[in-house]
């Protein structure tokens, strides 16, 4: 770890004020990704702005009409165990419960995960499939516009995520095939249906991060049933290849996970 200045803030406003003054400062949420990266000297921010004392304002889960609002500092554990989330979007609670291990789930936050946009992270698939909106200290960004590439988002320097708003779907499910070593998603498929709109998103597989599987969406829009996916497969092009899975295997797993997710969403 290199030297840095540490700031603790108790509000989003103070956090963003500080960030504006320190060009290469970083927000510290759960620290599950940021701190190991700093320890390995792969990141060297001049300052850390610790959001943990602002948790009271930045964390929490609220049901507002047909939406669920989740504060950026809400821990994965709290999303997984929230009665509100379990009732309204059980797939989202399931997903949060599959992230990492108990220690990671008690520290890691939804804001940190979304801001980081790891191509193998679970949350991005949910945000994109559920058509969520990311609220920042400056604006609202739709998930479609938010995830722009590997570890890249629409966030501007110093921009702070304050909460994520999820419209409640009529049906949804997440199926994760974990990487055997890291247990991040090697292939994760989130399917969601809201009214006529069906979305199928894939994380872990794409070489530029989370993406929507158009062919699968079209087939399921016609009829939201596993039979609609017969004969439909993902192409290996643009998928990652590594020692754990080559592109062909990942493409195959997208089909398997999609079918299993549809069955699960349909209560099968």
């Amino acid at each position: 770890m290199y030297q840095f200045t540490y700031h603790r803030v108790d509000s989003a406003r103070k956090a963003s004020n500080l960030a504006e003054k320190n060009e290469d400062a970083k927000f510290l949420a759960g620290g599950m990704t940021l701190l190991p990266t700093m320890k390995q000297r792969l990141a060297s921010p001049s300052a850390l702005i610790d959001l943990n004392s602002a948790s009271e304002k930045l964390a929490g889960i609220e049901v507002k009409g047909r939406n669920i609002h989740i504060g950026a500092m809400t821990r994965h554990y709290d999303v997984a165990n929230s009665k509100d989330v379990q009732e309204a979007i059980p797939a989202l609670a399931d997903l949060a419960g599959m992230i990492g291990d108990p220690a990671v789930r008690h520290r890691g936050t939804i804001g940190g995960s979304v801001a980081n946009n790891d191509p193998a992270a679970d949350y991005p698939s949910a945000l994109l499939a559920l058509n969520a909106t990311i609220h920042t200290n400056k604006r609202k960004i739709t998930a479609d516009e938010f995830f722009t590439g590997l570890f890249e988002t629409a966030l501007e320097p110093g921009e702070l995520i304050t909460k994520i708003v999820f419209p409640v779907p009529s049906k949804a499910a997440y199926m994760k095939f974990p990487n055997p070593a890291s247990r991040y998603a090697m292939v994760g498929v989130f399917v969601a249906k809201k009214g006529k709109d069906v979305r199928v998103t894939v994380t872990g597989a794409g070489s530029s991060g989370v993406f929507r599987a158009g062919k699968f969406e079209a087939a399921l829009t016609a009829k939201f049933h596993v039979k609609s996916l017969e004969g439909i497969s993902a192409t290996a092009e643009g998928l990652n290849s590594d020692i754990h899975a080559d592109a062909a295997y990942r493409a195959h797993l997208i089909g398997v996970m999609a079918r299993r997710a549809v069955n699960k969403a349909n209560g099968k």
Binding site: P180, A181, I243
Partner: peptide, 18 residues
């Protein structure tokens, strides 16, 4: 696993599966 140039690909628990 090492790549052809001799870099250890599985140099952490992220890739080395315990």
């Amino acid at each position: 696993y090492y790549d052809k140039s001799g870099q250890l690909i599985t140099a952490s628990f992220n890739d080395y599966c315990m």
